[in-house]
């Protein structure tokens, strides 16, 4: 197991390196002189000279990459000239919002998607299944930003149940915090819960016909105990894989949801960076989000042996 873990972690390293190369080059591909595009309207000769020195712009490209990488490992993610703050600081401030949003959306997807999917698969081709299938199809077809707008229209502007935007930190109270995150989490998690619903449904369908389930039933095990005891264990791998992959969609979707609900998270930071051509900030946020995604999938991979004792490495 440990050997596999090490191997898996090591194999993630070249992927991370390649990602960093892609991100590094994405800025260099923009037409124009690096100093000019990074500094924008704050361009002065001194600032440009300082930038050139810091990033070794007169050196060959591979050298520049190594310098940049070195800076990263020292925690220097560059400086956002438009926001006048170090990128690392901006990321740190935005992180709790996105983490909470992603976590809540994931919880929503898990607690709504999995049970509903199981119900549908268990009662295959009967009414609950039809409902679940339809719900799942609708869930993956509705754009999450439209769902968010509709929720704002009904729950916030008409019924005044929730604030239409803005993040209330935990320090101001758990209730207020959850209130401000409810609609964003549902809007973002909705599509993911539909995906999870569909795959738990088909996972359930597959499992339900298996011999050992019939065996368990014959022994007198039914309903919830059957599910928790046998089904969950055997479907978990698929579902966890899906969840891991869907976090990518959550992280990407957070860009749009954070914009609609005025949440100052990493997603809206990335959007701001790209719209403002704030290239160093863009590098930092994109690198950060993709690294998070790779790490999450790594954890998912490593968790397989926990989930299924048959998987031996």
């Amino acid at each position: 197991m440990l050997r596999y873990a090490c191997k898996r972690i090591l194999s993630a390293v070249p992927v991370l390196l390649l990602i960093s190369i892609v991100v590094f080059f994405s800025v260099r591909l923009v037409p124009g002189d690096f100093a000019t595009i990074v500094l924008g309207n704050l361009y002065t000769d001194e600032a440009a000279a300082a930038l050139r020195q810091q990033y070794g712009l007169d050196q060959p490209l591979p050298q520049q990459y190594l310098i940049w990488l070195g800076n990263l490992f020292q925690g220097d993610f560059g400086y956002s000239y438009i926001s006048r703050q170090p990128v690392a600081e901006l990321l740190l401030k935005a992180l709790p919002v996105t983490l909470e949003l992603t976590a809540l959306s994931l919880l929503f997807a898990i607690f709504i998607g999995i049970p509903l999917g199981y119900v549908g698969g268990y009662h295959r081709n009967r009414l609950p299944d039809s409902c679940v299938s339809v719900l799942g199809l609708i869930g993956i077809s509705v754009p999450n930003f439209w769902l968010g707008s509709m929720m704002i229209l009904t729950l916030s502007l008409t019924l005044h149940l929730f604030p239409s935007g803005g993040f209330v930190p935990l320090s101001s109270g758990l209730a207020a915090n959850l209130r401000s995150m409810f609609m964003p989490a549902v809007a973002l998690g909705g599509a993911v819960s539909a995906v999870v619903m569909r795959s738990s449904r088909s996972a359930m369908i597959e499992v339900v016909d298996q011999e050992y389930i019939k065996m368990a039933r014959a022994k007198g095990v039914y309903g919830l105990r059957l599910i928790l005891g046998h089904v969950v264990r055997n479907t978990m791998i698929n579902i966890v894989t899906i969840l891991g992959l869907q976090t990518g969609s959550l992280l990407g979707g957070s860009v749009v949801i954070e914009k609609i609900f005025s949440l100052a998270g990493v997603g809206s930071l990335a959007l701001r960076a790209i719209s403002n051509r704030d290239y160093l900030l863009m590098q930092g946020t994109v690198l950060f989000i993709t690294t998070m995604f790779v790490l999450i999938n790594l954890i998912v991979d490593l968790s397989y042996s926990l989930l299924n004792p048959q998987i031996k490495y």
Binding site: S26, G248, L251, G253, V286, T290, F293
Partner: peptide
């Protein structure tokens, strides 16, 4: 490429 969330890659 799979490591990039789709929207983010498109934005980039």
């Amino acid at each position: 490429m799979f490591s990039f969330p789709e929207i983010l890659l498109a934005l980039l």
